[in-house]
Design a protein around this nucleic acid. Structure first.
Lengths: 322, 322
DNA sequence: TCCTATTTTGGAAACGATTCCATTTTAATA
DNA sequence: TATTAAAATGGAATCGTTTCCAAAATAGGA
């Protein structure tokens, strides 16, 4: 009863030709007689034949699959990045295998291993764990988003330092003196570290005290408890900035009169859900596009075209929180 | 110079055993002598051998890959759904191929075809296009999120009708008489239609006029232009609700005094970014988990365990917009 | 009509794993 | 020690394609 999926050989048999001929029709390669081609198409139609891409991949030694490793899709920045990566790859005939590392080193390692076994043609790595040595030794085409992986792996990022300067300067220009920065977890090798450096550099340059909190469950409450007179907060991403806003309103601060807040990322969803938030917007779409380009260049051996460090510029989006 | 990836045969040769033996070590199957196993592990180590999953898949006729078809990852609801789907599948040893249909029928068709060619073990379909006949004829295990696909395809959804009742009732209870509903695009076969039906039913039952707008570029402005005295708005998702809030504030409405707004979905990101929004929360995590369960049941032929219609209950999250 | 170049086709060997079956080696029991 | 069962190993076929090579058919020109 359980009838097998039709294979190329079944098509060949029904059309009365050889496997070779069917393969030629399928791939439009070499010489093919018109009536033969027609017969083959007919046979495919009647059998509802779908070529087995796995068998094909095995032979041609290419899968047209790209691995995407990110901490999570459940975050406006990554969600948008992944969306555009998928779109761009799809347009070029590549499929994407999605891996959520969840910020865990062991998961990232396991995924990396899995992707290699699955013979992916390349990887876009956007997770931020430290100390994964596989990146060093693999010969696989890789592009990294916002993290140094190995000497030969190109990195795509936005200009985090400039973004940090932009954000801090804005708060200073608006008259803030007492400015605090909130950073993501520092054990992750995130680009946020550059944003922080910019903040600290410019505060130093202006002779002002600087203070950086590392985000945790209680960070935001602690910050307000310990610094009731804070005038400006630069959060290293929009989610943190939003939580700051929420807490500030709960405590009766008027924003932007008493307190100014600026975030970072400026993903589409954030801009819709929090249009009033001032933020530094990363060019997510352009970053995705460039990453795809760089990966394809590696896959197709155009290694000469590849610049190792690619930094795209950010943009200030002024809302009503500054 | 360009040295080939080591294959099973290379390992066998180096270890001085047969391919069969190496395969046995690899899969922990059958009898294996201890010293032999050790030799094989050694050889794998020195060669940095990674088994070729493609070749394996071809033989065992299983890929352990699941196709995910959704309109986009760049939306809090889908982003969270995809995140949990991926996590649950990963825990069971499955990988996911991500497909963004972008709401286009032709893309969904193309993806479906691609997934079949790639021999995926199953599909979770969360896109909402009409008239895709492939779902009717394919023998592939499928689970649909929130859409009827074919008689034999199980559907996972939340109780949209109850959600619509809940939302509309709340507005009524809070004293609204003039309540308007905003729906997504009606040419998509979305569950929003049930939410709308609930809204219209209950308004009728209360002898009140009802009015549904279909979302477009200008819908929200039109709505306010044409109904300046609107007291309550029930939006079919949180993004629309947020845009309503933004426009309302721009026009000077006080929320919730002059106007009450309720959304739908209640995704984690939305709750962080818009904590004040009242919404109907779908049990996204549970929906994902159940979908995975239903798909695996099909893949492993436990067809008796499968209920065709699975509706999970929703929850009212009261914020400050009502 | 014959010869050569082009077009059209098919046979068989890959691709890198797994598994069936058979064979050899080792261990256990009488 | 002989006998038998269990443990350990290997050979060859297979999964569904593609491609190399050779052969057959057709067409074109002298």
């Amino acid at each position: 009863m359980e009838l097998r999926k039709p294979k190329l050989e079944d098509v060949a048999k029904l059309a009365g030709v050889s496997r070779t001929t069917v393969s030629r029709v399928l791939n439009n390669r070499g010489y093919i007689g018109d009536k033969t081609r027609e017969k083959v198409y007919q046979a495919m139609e009647t059998l509802d034949y779908h070529p087995n891409e796995i068998a094909r991949s095995l032979f041609i030694n290419k899968t047209n699959i790209i691995g995407l490793i990110f901490p999570t899709t459940n975050n406006p920045f990554y969600a948008q990045m992944i969306y555009h990566l998928e779109n761009n790859f799809e347009a070029l005939g590549y499929k994407v295998l999605l891996c959520n590392s969840g910020g865990r080193v062991d998961k990232e390692r396991a995924y990396l291993d899995m992707l290699q076994r699955h013979q992916v043609d390349g990887i876009v790595a956007g997770a931020h764990n430290r100390g994964i040595e596989i990146y060093e030794k693999t010969k696989l085409p890789i592009v990294s988003i916002d993290r140094y992986l190995a000497p030969h792996v190109p990195v795509v990022s936005s200009d985090n330092y400039a973004g940090g300067i932009l954000a801090t300067s804005l708060l200073l220009d608006k008259g803030c003196q007492h400015i605090i920065h909130i950073n993501g977890p520092i054990d992750l090798e995130t680009p946020a570290n550059l944003r922080r450096k910019a903040y600290e550099d410019i505060m130093k340059k202006n002779g002002l005290p600087y203070l950086t909190y590392e985000i945790s469950e209680t960070t935001i409450r602690d910050l307000f408890d310990q610094n009731p007179h804070v005038e400006g907060i630069f959060a290293s991403d929009d989610l943190i900035a939003t939580q700051v806003l929420t807490e500030a309103r709960k405590r009766g601060y008027r924003v932007p009169e008493d307190l100014k807040v600026i975030g970072y990322d400026g993903a589409d969803m954030t801009c819709i859900l929090r249009p009033e938030l001032t933020t530094i917007q990363q060019p997510i779409d352009a970053m995705a596009e460039l990453s795809v380009q760089l990966l394809i260049d590696q896959i197709e051996q155009r290694t000469d075209q590849i610049t190792l460090h690619n930094s795209l510029s950010v943009k200030l989006i002024e809302g009503q929180t500054t």
